[in-house]
Design a protein around this nucleic acid. Structure first.
Length: 569
RNA sequence: UGCCCCUUAGCUCAACUGGCAGAGCGUCUGACUCUGAAUCAGAAGGUUCCAGGUUCGAAACCUGGAGGGGCAACCA
């Protein structure tokens, strides 16, 4: 396929997957359609934290700008003083940058209020907009229904002079909230409900987080969005499918206001991810009702939550790349995301030994008080790195409870009475005795080690099937390990009986705290260091972790084919 | 009940615009292995929503239907 994108220099090394939007943009360039370089924008409302759905949009908008040598603005769609806050502006900027993108212009719809007001007067002067003084329910009733046309209200044919006078006094603050609104004079019988004289501006005597009290006439989405795009010279205004019907008023407004080569709105499917919710409204409820510890709770699908969990921006970008962009409602399996996370971490993250559920093992033939330092490879063979560290080995060890069964099935390649296994980077050991407490719980295993197997191999050539991880009982460090799992226990949290809502689908075990042990080498590492706990999963030390009280978050578990095997049994 | 959008493998997407339906993830099998990880090799998996039509030839074009979704906030 010929490369016609005229973007040789701009495109990053990996050529991104082509989707229908990139096809359009490529075509824009070839056709010289807008008379300017491709220009996109990412336009969040600062009323919540960014989540994976936004990540998809960010990768699309900024990605297109990069690939086609264009620009991408960050614009805050801050037209509703009731819901917005600077703290959200700050989190959004941080998250976009963390994801690896830098905007060209940083704009605020609230900076366009004066200009938008001028447009409003222009529309009034041209007979394209009017001040309606009906109340909310009258307006709703006058709009008709999906099957019946709306009817003109009593104010629809006010004179230009009267409209102008009212509009100026609305701006001046002479009227109470709701007394009047500005509406487009479009078509009350239009089959597209959006076109039935949509509201353009409403009075809101409320402090705006940026404009304070100097403004009381706020534009609504349809009025502000497209015209803001046009002011910035955007070429493709990318948004999600639910705005499809709004495109008609978008086009109507930029045309009536008089923009030449106006931006074109193009819609794509929003992201849905299994076992979570991607809607600011719902995420806000999780925060406000205390189901999570905050917007950055590691179980949240927010960028801040994922960052705290330990997911890297590279994984998020790779995920967005692989899911693509289309016009069909998409619900992505969580396995796809987890694969992207593991794939990103696999070769770059050091391995470490950590036991989550310690079970004591005493090596009865190992000298008391002896400590051997075992050399352990910190990276897998397919990594570019080949560093090692030393792990202390002693007479008393801990292994994971899951790695012992008193009465194991045939294919259990781990510790069991009479069975021999390899301790990773250590010796071959054989279990001889199981010690139980009065309640019958296994509390200790008494084993012997084979001193000739320090390399991990038996000189006589005998093979063992299993290798398990371990930690010295005396030299290891205690640690808190937070095992995060899916936030909801069903793939679609909204698919609950009518009388319930998504809150009822929360997974009660989305956070399980374990008190485990970890090899001492990690004590020197900075907070935020990522590891693979061998045979367990990927972890990152939490920001609350200290040398005295180590805390690790599980980023994602390892693939576990044994667990699948168990399920079959 | 009006208008609009969507429908290709379990999931997400391709199919150079009418020319042998493919990829990633997932699943299964095997190899390798001091991580039951990773890696490698292979396999299974399709009435391209259905029914007609146009065509030498249809996933694509036309007609009709079905299923899913969006729109009647002074939210975005």
């Amino acid at each position: 396929m010929p490369d016609t994108t005229a973007s040789d220099s701009a495109a990053p090394a990996a050529s991104p997957r082509r989707d229908f939007i990139r096809e359009m943009v490529a075509d824009d360039v070839v056709a010289g359609r807008f008379g300017r370089a491709p220009a996109t924008r990412f336009p969040p409302e600062p009323n919540g934290f960014l989540h994976m759905g936004h990540a998809k949009s960010i990768c699309l908008n900024f990605g297109i700008a990069q690939e086609f040598g264009g620009t991408c603005n960050l614009r805050f769609d801050d037209t509703n003083p009731f819901t917005e806050d600077v703290k959200y502006v700050e989190s959004i900027k941080r998250d976009v940058q963390w994801l690896g993108f830098q905007w060209d212009g940083e704009y605020y719809a609230s900076d366009y209020f004066e200009q938008l007001y001028e447009f409003a007067e222009r529309l009034v002067n041209n007979g394209r907009a009017y001040v309606d003084s009906q109340n909310e329910s009258e307006i709703r009733a006058g709009r008709g229904t999906v099957t019946s046309a709306g009817v003109a209200g009593p104010y629809r044919n006010r004179s230009v002079e009267e409209n102008l006078d009212l509009l100026r006094r609305m701006r001046a603050g002479e009227f109470a909230d709701g007394a009047h609104v500005l509406r487009a004079k479009a078509n009350l019988a239009h089959p597209n409900m959006i076109m039935r004289d949509p509201l353009l501006m409403r009075i809101r005597h409320a402090p705006h987080y940026r404009r304070g009290n100097d403004w009381c006439l706020y534009p609504l989405y349809d009025f502000a969005h497209g015209l803001s795009d046009a002011i910035e010279g955007i070429t493709r205004s990318l948004c999600t499918l639910e705005f499809k019907d709004n495109r008609e008023i978008y086009d109507w407004l930029v045309r009536e206001v008089g923009f030449v080569n106006p931006p074109r709105q193009t819609e794509f499917a929003r992201l849905e991810l299994d076992y979570t919710v991607l809607s600011k409204r719902k995420l806000l409820r999780l925060v406000n009702e205390g189901h999570v510890s905050g917007w950055d709770d590691p179980r949240m699908p927010t960028i801040a939550g994922l960052r705290r969990r330990g997911v890297r921006p590279e994984a998020i970008r790779a995920f967005c790349e692989v899911i693509g962009v289309a016009r069909k409602d998409a619900r992505v399996e969580i396995a796809t995301f987890e694969h992207a996370i593991r794939d990103d971490l696999n070769t770059i993250v050091p391995r470490v030994l950590s036991v989550l559920q310690p079970l004591k093992v005493v090596l009865t033939n190992y000298p008391e008080g002896q400590i051997e330092q075992m050399e352990a490879a910190s990276y897998p063979p397919d990594s570019a790195r080949n560093e090692t560290r030393l792990v202390p080995f002693t007479r008393e060890l801990f292994v994971d409870r899951d790695d012992f069964m008193e009465d194991p099935p045939k294919k259990f390649f781990r510790l069991a009475p009479g069975k021999e296994v390899r301790l990773r980077f250590g010796y071959l050991i054989t279990c001889h005795e199981v010690v139980k407490n009065d309640a019958g719980d296994v509390i200790e295993l008494r084993c012997t080690y084979d001193p000739a197997t320090r390399s991990g191999n038996a000189p006589d050539g005998r093979k063992v099937q299993g290798t398990i991880h371990w930690v010295s009982a005396t030299e290891s460090l205690p640690c808190e390990v937070r095992l995060y799992d899916r936030l909801f226990s069903q793939a679609d949290p909204d698919a609950v009986p009518d009388e319930l809502d998504f809150i009822s689908a929360l997974n009660p075990e989305s956070l399980v705290v374990m008190h485990g042990r970890i090899e001492p080498s990690v004590a020197k590492d900075a907070v935020g260091t990522r590891y693979q706990f061998e045979r367990t999963g990927y972890f990152m030390s939490d920001e609350a972790s200290t040398a005295d009280a180590l805390v690790f978050n599980r980023i994602v578990s390892l693939r576990d084919s044994w667990a699948k095997e168990v399920k079959k049994m």
